[in-house]
Amino acid sequence: MTGIGAKITGLSLVLATLVFGFMLWGLRGPTGFILELRAIKLVSLICVGAAAGAATVLFQTVARNQLLTPGIVGFDALFVLIQTLLVAVLGGIGTAQLPAALRFALETGVLMLAASLLFGSLLRRDASDITRMILTGVIVGVLLRGLSSMVQRLLDPSEFSIVQQAMFASFGQVDAGQLVIAALTLLAAFALAMRLAPMLDVAALGRQTARGLGVPYDSLMLITLLIVAAMISISTALVGPITFLGLLCASLARLWLDTHRHAVLIPASALIGALTLVSGQFVFERLLHSESALAVVVEFFGGLLFLILVLRKAKT
């Protein structure tokens, strides 16, 4: 087995061990019920971690910048705006009464549609101008945040607290029905990404070189962005926005595995994402018996890493 193969196997084994620990540690009382709850939480942690990790590797290839995350183009802001509008239009009770599957489908659908429109129109106009696309994303993000903030001022305090809950990722309220749909869609997106992995290796050389080598660069980038949109939309709709988790995973995968190959980086980053969330939740829930928001801690360390990477790049 090669060094990279051994490392991926090692990651998988650690994740498998953590899965057992997460499910069985301190198990007492009505085991069937508790195991079901733990299984839902575990699968949602794995889905979200893997989606954030894999999507960030793909997004960084499209953007040709290893400091970026999909959150930068306004996904999180759009998610918060959707939540805000739902509460503003339907009211707090109306939003709560909305069937979970419908709400999930609505959120995912709107996020994917918006991402496709943004990327699709920008790519059609000038496929080589990724920088403009990202800058537009940043501006759109600011605009969406501004709109959310404006609508939030019109809400009464109880309704605002519902929106506020949605503004931070939470793994405690995932619906089992949503999770099945999300997991299957993520698996399909992941399989497609792995199929495209060798072509993405060539595409990483840039538009002209890749096209010169016969890679259909523009359509490949569009498909990859749609995969990213699907992964991030589903993960965000499932638990809420986590901006820096993906950056953490993709950076660690590149650093540890020392490769440019997408066939390695995509699964490795996905595994690291799942590992980070499962281990973090395990430590908080099982060992520290704390209900602290894992997402906040992940965001803290992810943000810290982002700063370190930016400062290191500035130095070099």
Binding site: R64, Q66, A204, L205, G206, Q208, T209, R254, D258, T259, H260
Partner: peptide, 8 residues
């Protein structure tokens, strides 16, 4: 001046 990929 073609661009490169790190670790390639």
């Amino acid at each position: 001046s073609p661009t490169t990929v790190s670790r390639l």
